[in-house]
Amino acid sequence: MVRLTIDNKKIKVEEGTTLLETAQKLNIEIPTLCHHQALKPYGACRVCLVEVIKGSRLGLVASCTYPAEEGLVARTETERVKRARRLSIELLLARCPTSEKVREVALELGVKKVRFKEEKEECILCGLCVRVCEEAIAKSAISFINRGADREVTTPFKIGSLACIGCGACVYLCPTGAIKIEDVRKCRRLDFWNTKLELKKCKVCGKHFVPLVELDYLKDRIKSFEEMELPEEALEVCPKCRKRILSEKAGEFIFGEKYP
């Protein structure tokens, strides 16, 4: 356990806890754009900066990556912190002027106007999509390419991905809504990734609902259907039908066979 102070509040946390997690325990709010608790800390957006004082060291660090250390004193509300956070969000707003999420965080930090040249990007390069695809889904269908001002996220050779299973985890985590997912008839489209995937029909209602590749992935990943007391075909039934069937089963279980 290490003891530290954030905004004059003392706390004891386990070694390896980040400053962001520590602050959350103290109900101190720190804005973030590239952080997600299920993924490894990354430290890219710089909106979560805090000021730390340790010995003679005084500096800004990303709270999402900086570990709690014994005797550390951190501040989240100093002028220096505010200035730095405001600039980073203003820069992101200049990059993505139409993003609601960026605008919302900007407003929270008191940034109303952009003084820089505006672009029309939708992606802030937080890397949540890249990381979730690698760390959680283990597919690595997408990656950062190029560097510096030319950095972007995309699929290999910017063509339809063979690794993407269309699970939509990237869509779910994307803070700006840049990645869109859409089922059009027999096809799942992820235009941001230049990818189209064929969908499988629901065994019950006949609606196309899951990419064939995702189905294979799930079957592969769920190692033992028996242990889960789940028939393998369960995956081939769309969520809507599955829900209906399950609720019917539950009804039968509770109210007897005459249900409903």
Binding site: G43, A44, C45, R46, V47, A84, L87, S88, L91, L92, A94, R95, F116, K117, I124, L125, G127, F144, N146, R147, G148, A149, D150, R151
Partner: peptide
């Protein structure tokens, strides 16, 4: 030079240098 050589990971370096250059 630094605009092209920045890795592009963090906001201030990637976006900030680009804007200073502009």
């Amino acid at each position: 030079f630094t605009r092209d050589e920045s890795c592009g990971k963090c906001t201030p370096c990637r976006e900030g240098i680009k804007q200073m250059y502009e």
